[in-house]
Each structure stands twice: as structure tokens, then as C-alpha cells.
């Protein structure tokens, strides 16, 4: 049983990645910088995976920062006002984002792709405006407010504990996504994605499934948002920024749209590339390189980096014959 499990290269690769993720802090644990990069990387893996889950239902979003931020504000308000520990309020942040997500989804499910893109983008702008104007008495407006950290900073090695907590949440998220996609819901989503009219003909009502995808995606984006704020210890409305809507898209596309491993690989590769280029002192050129990478991947490798091995094998074969 065990041996057969590890004969599958994909499972083996996954096992190795997970093992490395658990062992890394033992080597770099004393280095605050590496740990910070890793923690942010994990948070963005959750966020990108959540965004990517929406594409499984054939939908897309240009404004996921709305959910990232709503989760963060939901959790932070609970933690800061009621004095609950951040680890408990995470869940509330996710649920809050999911509820709003489903409501937004209600307006979106009937829309074509580019309309959907616009509406989601617009919601992020509207929610940010609300948070800093009409809702300012509750949210603190532009000033934001301090939030208890995920692990109180007095504890020895708090950042490392934080890393492990977030790592476990990340793995749990991906396992859940995997299970969802294998389940009947996942099959229905695939059917809707491939051809909505045929799916309808087969007796699948797309609306609840699309809403479900919206809710789940918003939930995990919200969890990621609350984790980021619990890591920073301070929440401000910048969390609804356009760049935060774009990063999960860039990560997912680079890694491979519509695959489980895509957002994970994409986040790791792009973050490393980004921080590496930063360390080399490149400023604007860094953005240009990421932009060119994105364009090239969409044109030449539409299934992302995950499809690279298969693609190379295919090309090698073609050369041989």
C-alpha cells in the first residue's frame, strides 16, 4: 500500500514538498527575513488557491481583495473589540467574507465573463469607499486599528509557531479543495465550466453551484486576509488595494489555472523571483519582468508552469520522430 502510493510521481512530489515545508524552519528558523517571506508566501498560497477555486466553476474575479479585506476586517473587529484571540476569529473572518461573497455572487452568476470581471472589480472599490467613509466609526476609517497577533509576540519563537499554524491551515485548505473537486460538486462545477447549456440539459442547475464556488472562494480569501492581518498586527484599508486583487491572478496563471498545484507553484516561483530581483536592486524592471513573464506564459504555456514537464516531454518526442 505504502510503496504503491509513493510510486505515483505526483504523490511523491507532493509528499516531498510538504516534508520540505515542515523542515525548512529548522534550517532558517533563526532568520527572521526567510521566515517572514515564507509566512507571507503561505498566506498568498491560500489566497491564490481560493481565487483559483472560483475558476473551477468557469467564473473569474478582478476584485478578490474585497474578500481578502472583508475577512481581515471581520476577524480583526471581533478580535480587537471583543478581545478574542486571533486564532479563533479567523473563522469568523472567513464566514463574514463568505456571506458577503454569496451576496455579491447573487448579482454575478448571471453575468458573462467580462461583466463579471468588472462587477467584482467594482465591488472592491465600493467596499473600500464604504470602509473609509460611512463605516469609519466602526472600522477606524483610514487610520485602521491594531489587532492582536496570531501568536503573542512575547512567546519564544512566536514567528516560527505562526509559520507552523499557517502551514497547517494551508495544507488543510488544499486537501479540502482536492476533496471538493473530486466530489459530485466538483464534477458538477466542471460540467458547468465546460458548457453551461449542456450542464443545464443534464439537469444541473448552475446557479447554486456557482454561488457555492463564490462562497467557498470568498471564505478562504477571507481566512487568508485575516491571517495576514494577524501577522502584521494592524489593519488598514490599503488591504482592499488593486494590487492585492491582481497578485492571486498572477500567481495562479503562472502556476497553472484550474489546477490544484498551480497556485502553490505559481506563488512560490513568483515570490522568489520577485524578492530575488528586489535583492538585486531592480526597481521598475522588476514589474516589467513579471509582466513579460505573465504575457509569455499566457501565450506559450497557457496551462502554466505545472504543464511544463509534460510540454517538454511532448516537444522532445516531436523532435525525436
Amino acid at each position: 500500500m505504502n510503496t504503491s502510493l509513493f510510486r505515483d510521481p505526483l504523490t511523491l512530489a507532493t509528499a516531498i514538498v510538504v516534508l520540505i515545508a515542515f523542515l525548512i524552519p529548522l534550517f532558517v528558523g533563526s532568520n527572521l527575513y526567510y521566515l517572514t517571506v515564507l509566512v507571507l508566501m503561505l498566506i498568498f498560497i491560500i489566497y491564490a488557491s481560493a481565487w483559483n477555486f472560483l475558476t473551477f466553476s468557469g467564473q473569474g474575479s478582478l476584485g478578490h481583495a474585497a474578500f481578502f479585506g472583508l475577512g481581515a476586517y471581520g476577524a480583526s473587529l471581533m478580535a480587537a473589540r471583543l478581545g478574542l484571540p486571533s486564532i479563533l476569529t479567523l473563522l469568523f473572518g472567513g464566514i463574514f467574507a463568505a456571506v458577503i461573497g454569496v451576496l455579491i455572487g447573487l448579482t454575478c452568476v448571471r453575468l458573462r465573463e467580462w461583466f463579471l470581471a468588472m462587477v467584482t472589480f467594482g465591488f472592491a472599490v465600493i467596499i473600500q469607499t464604504l470602509v473609509v467613509s460611512q463605516l469609519a466609526p466602526v472600522t477606524g476609517g483610514w487610520d485602521g486599528f491594531p489587532v492582536p497577533k496570531l501568536v503573542p509576540s512575547g512567546i519564544q519563537g512566536s514567528l516560527m509557531i505562526e509559520y507552523y499554524i499557517i502551514l497547517i491551515i494551508t495544507i488543510a485548505t488544499i486537501i479540502l479543495f482536492r476533496w471538493l473537486l473530486k466530489s459530485r460538486i466538483g464534477l458538477a462545477l466542471a460540467a458547468i465550466r465546460e458548457n453551461e447549456i449542456e450542464a443545464r440539459a443534464a439537469g444541473i442547475n448552475p446557479v447554486p453551484f456557482k454561488l457555492f464556488a463564490f462562497g467557498v472562494s470568498a471564505f478562504f480569501a477571507g481566512i487568508a486576509g485575516s491571517l495576514e492581518i494577524a501577522h502584521f498586527g494592524y489593519v488598514t484599508p490599503e488591504i482592499f488595494g488593486i494590487d492585492l486583487s491582481f497578485w492571486p491572478i498572477i500567481y495562479s496563471i503562472t502556476g497553472g489555472l484550474g489546477t490544484l498545484a498551480g497556485p502553490v507553484i505559481g506563488t512560490i516561483v513568483v515570490t522568489l523571483l520577485w524578492d530575488g530581483l528586489n535583492a538585486m536592486g531592480l526597481t521598475y524592471a522588476r514589474f516589467i519582468i513579471i509582466g513579460v513573464l505573465l504575457v509569455l506564459i499566457i501565450i506559450f504555456l497557457p496551462k502554466g508552469l505545472v504543464s511544463l514537464p509534460a510540454e517538454i516531454r511532448k516537444r522532445m518526442k516531436r523532435k525525436d520522430t
Binding site: E113, I253, F287, G291, L294, I299
Partner: peptide, 19 residues
């Protein structure tokens, strides 16, 4: 893909702005 043109525009935005 349906959304590819939107995604490729994101890349173009980064390229143009920073050039």
C-alpha cells in the same frame, strides 16, 4: 480561454507603466 485577454492585459499594464 474566456478570460485570457483580461489576464494578458494585466501583464501589459505592468509592462507599460514601468517602461
Amino acid at each position: 480561454g474566456k478570460l485570457n485577454e483580461i489576464f494578458i492585459s494585466l501583464g501589459l499594464i505592468y509592462i507599460f507603466q514601468n517602461m
